[in-house]
Design a protein around this nucleic acid. Structure first.
Lengths: 228, 228
DNA sequence: CAGTTGTTCTAACAGAATGTCAGAAATCAC
DNA sequence: GTGATTTCTGACATTCTGTTAGAACAACTG
């Protein structure tokens, strides 16, 4: 979806054998080296030369598998995408009550952020310097806007959620998630998961379900960072 | 504060005459050209050569006044800083009631965002590619975290605001503002001011002043985008 | 106005990274 | 082994960056 695998079938017909495939291995090796690099250093310090020095291949080889460093990030992002959408599903469809469904979704969002924070930060860092990656990233973020907005509309119709422009509020909340999670988990040392969840969760609930008992409970007593 | 003005006094003593100053003019001309460029095109397309072609000076001249393109952005950001801090002052000190004070602050924040959106986007775009600018930008954002957090703590002590970790919630809300405003006003066509204010305002109020009458009013009737 | 001084600017250079391409090397099929 | 295919590399052209030595200019001084 992201990068054109140039070597899949150089001539028209499909290559006879498609086993582990040496090419696939090389590609993986490059992706791994990239992932690992970004675990400890920012995207701006990543160069094709430096990256390939960490593999047993030459610099030119990189261009056989990716158009450029942004292309590599695009691939890395694809690998993360799955997890996020999946975890949020519960709330987005109407399963369970709104509040705890939302909490579950946010919980899993925080989990993914914690897990893949450095990749997300790298993509968000790299996006502004490349039109194509910027578009991919923006589309990725926007996709949440639409689906969250839809859920808000439903809750508004039911009277669970106050009236306001669902799309804009969804967009604001999603930008908050992105910015806050990347800030919290984008580089080491990572923030504490539970406090991050607690803060985000408060804001979403206060905004979307201010009348709900659970939300109000959270307001009266202490719903923030547990005595860690 | 941001860039070293190398030519101010090349020898130790201050230069005798400091009138319009030809150097200052040149510097301004470059800043203007930069501003104007960013009004219509993203930072990634800005090069020193291209920038200086829009002035009557040579490429090398650029380096007499700025270290690099990031340095130029740092200067541009400085010019915007003032306006933001100023507008928020009302709420941050305790003048008037919390809710309308907050609304005023947010209103003026949205104004500044609308006014200087393209610069803010450029800085936020450029920051990840330069350690120094990244630090400046991060410090800029964090400065709001602290001061907002302080105000929240006060309101919590008074019982106006629910209990939660003030710093983390402040950070999340501020990241939301930054991301959302840049998204809304960072490039043309700009979003509608009033709707943006309305959305942001809703979230802040719901989070910080859920018990307040004005907030609750906003919840019952329609507080979002006025029939423009 | 000719000399002196300091300021402002530029042409030319050296370096770092990118992306391409012709062909070398490895691998496979028979 | 030999030929075909896949995988890889050295070498090149390009683009942008940041520096430096000195040219052009302006202003004041005697």
């Amino acid at each position: 979806m992201s990068e054109i695998t140039k070597h899949a079938s150089p001539s028209g017909r499909p290559s006879r054998r498609m086993e582990p495939g040496k090419a696939a291995l090389t590609r993986s090796a490059i992706l791994d080296a990239g992932s690992q690099f970004l675990e400890s250093r920012p995207f701006r310090e990543l160069t094709v030369g430096g990256l390939m020095a960490a593999t047993k291949y030459s610099r030119a080889t990189f261009y056989l598998y990716f158009n450029d460093l942004h292309g590599l990030l695009e691939t890395l992002l694809d690998e993360v995408k799955g997890g996020i959408v999946e975890g949020a599903q519960a709330w987005l469809s109407n399963e369970g009550d709104a509040v705890s469904g939302l909490q579950n979704s946010l919980r899993s969002l925080v989990d993914v952020g914690y897990e893949h924070g450095t990749i997300l930060k790298a993509v968000s860092d790299a996006a502004p310097s490349d039109a194509r990656l910027e578009h991919v990233w923006e589309t990725f973020l926007s996709s949440f806007d639409e689906v969250v907005s839809a859920r808000i509309s439903r809750d508004q119709a039911e009277g669970f959620t106050p009236e306001f422009d669902p799309l804009l509020v969804a967009r604001a909340l999603n930008r908050m998630d992105a910015g806050f999670l990347i800030r919290a988990f984008g580089s080491h040392p990572k923030a504490e998961k539970e406090s991050v969840f607690s803060a985000i969760s408060h804001i979403w609930l206060a905004t979307l379900n201010p009348f709900d008992t659970q939300t109000l409970d959270g307001f009266k007593s202490n719903g923030s960072a547990e005595n860690s």
